[in-house]
Nucleic acid binder design. Structure first.
Lengths: 150, 150
DNA sequence: ATTTTTGCAAACCTTTTGCATGGAA
DNA sequence: TTCCATGCAAAAGGTTTGCAAAAAT
């Protein structure tokens, strides 16, 4: 039933116990959609009286990141944030107005990375690309009203 | 003529006062070379008895980031780090063994970013690319001794 | 002389940890 | 029943802030 939730499924598959707090966190995350900080998640949990302590929240997030179903990213402000995602290498575009995210594949990027390695002489092992802008929805809103993002 | 130091020059040009602590921080940074965390810089300053308080260090770093002569980046570990750099849009490759960095231009990447925008429907405003690997020097060392990075 | 900058110390925030209790398998 | 996971509360970092004193212009 709730194993429909991909995070819960991943926890289950990996043999972790499906506890009340973990289920609550997983549910919050998939319902949430966009990116979120640990604090945001904590206060949502508090509002809904889900009884998830701060320590447990962080432990759950760490677990999910390890399992690859949640990714940690860094906002331009330097804040740490998380997004739920499929367990494979990829990147996210983040809407700076509404927080919506989309996954992005490596097409074209891999080649650029290879080129950078060639030019710099570095053997490049990993990279992180974070993109920020306006999703289609917010472009329409901003374009219509002339409002500025943020 | 410490105005030879590009950070000092930038401070001067922007009309900030060239104080003892700022000069000390600027000097530490340009001498340092690779990336560094605020704490690392703080402890180096302490060792050398430069008399730069923590608060001032952070204020100086913030200033330099604002001026564009220092960039803040996020290591894979999630730690915040800084590197000194030229004030233009670019990215860094960071050696995960020795901390050496090289600047990288956008060639090829811009196109990839444009393509991502097209595919995702987002209007992409900014992006951050962080690359990690081994610099030429460390490749040679690791290759020779068979040691593994980190 | 005036205004900016600093140092100190405390506050703040986020994240982690030890340990006894509680809950899943 | 047996571990694993949780909560609590304290600790550990990292970063910011208010304010009086010090320094740069």
């Amino acid at each position: 039933m709730e194993a429909r939730n991909p995070i819960v499924r991943a926890l289950d598959d990996a043999g972790y116990r499906l506890t009340e707090p973990r289920l609550a966190v997983a549910d919050l995350i998939v319902r949430h959609g966009g990116h979120f900080t640990a604090s945001e998640l904590a206060s949502t949990a508090r509002q809904r009286r889900l009884g998830v302590s701060r320590a447990t929240l962080f432990r759950a997030l760490e677990l999910m990141v390890d399992l690859g179903v949640v990714e940690r990213l860094d906002l331009p402000s330097g804040e740490h944030a998380y997004v739920s995602c499929a367990p494979a290498h990829h990147h996210h575009v983040v809407c700076s107005r509404c927080g919506r995210t989309a996954e992005v594949d490596d097409t074209g990027l891999n080649e650029a990375v290879r080129e950078i390695g060639r030019a710099s002489g570095f053997r490049i092992d990993t990279h992180r690309l974070e993109l920020f802008g306006l999703c289609r929805h917010c472009q329409a809103i901003v374009g219509r009203s002339g409002a500025s993002p943020d």
